[in-house]
Amino acid sequence: MKNKEKHIGFILFVVFAVLPFTLAFGYALLYSFGVIGIVNEGFTLKFWKEVFTSSTLGVSFIYSSVIALIGVILSVSLALWIVLKYRESFGNKYLSFIIYMPLAVPGIVSAFFTYQLFAQSGFFARLSYQLNWIETAQQFPDLVNDNWAIGIIITFISLLTPFFILLYLNIYKDERIEELSQLSRALGANKKQIALKVSLPIMLKKSWVLIVLYFIFLLGAYEVPLILGQESPQMLSVLILRELKQFDLTKISEGYVMAVLYTVVIMSATVFIFSRKKLRNNAY
């Protein structure tokens, strides 16, 4: 009976997860080599050469990685600080509501919200004007569609921080960090040493896989950089979609090359993370 259930589970996994992914990936791969596609004329490496000789993808990859990294680092740091400093306040239902509410807000809504607040025609710009801090909208700092991706990073932080707060509150409780902290005090550790040698290492060790997965998630984010990003460089998903929707049909294959490369990098990273985790678990 158990074997049968296992087989059904495996078949469903193959049908609904592996098969669509493989077909889509195969389609993209064939398109990238010019084997299929309305204006393509057969197998060629020229689209791959085009992508590798142009710096667009590389720049976009580095740009996306930096933004995702900053977003994750700031979100995790903020969540850790809030949990270590104010965990007892989460008993207050209004405060916990304020913290957890953003979990229910979709990325696209958050992005619009950031736009409405931080754009040069947004709420804070108008407020600054009313307070006579600025005389024209242009004097307000460029926080949306800007060179430094500040709007994107603010939105990422607002989306990720509540999730990490929830995660770290649970880890704090499950790993009995309160008791371990008291024990550390008895062994002579001061507050700073407890934070650096006990609380933070335990919480980070327990959450590193999720941190990496969220980095990958941000790397491939679409709606937020689409609304709040600049024209160039663009984040990966926005760039790939732009290439795939080109009017010039001969350029579409380059979009598929980028999609294939992006998929290979992400899949390799994911497999590497989970194989390491599995190895570690087996070693235990």
């Binding site: 008291q182 005090r185 002579g188």
Partner: peptide, 20 residues
């Protein structure tokens, strides 16, 4: 005196080893 300066160690019922 603060706990960390007393040189007194309190051991819990559970061993409470540092998991990391």
């Amino acid at each position: 005196l603060e706990a960390e300066k007393r040189n007194i160690v309190y051991l819990y019922q559970e061993d409470l080893l540092f998991p990391h």
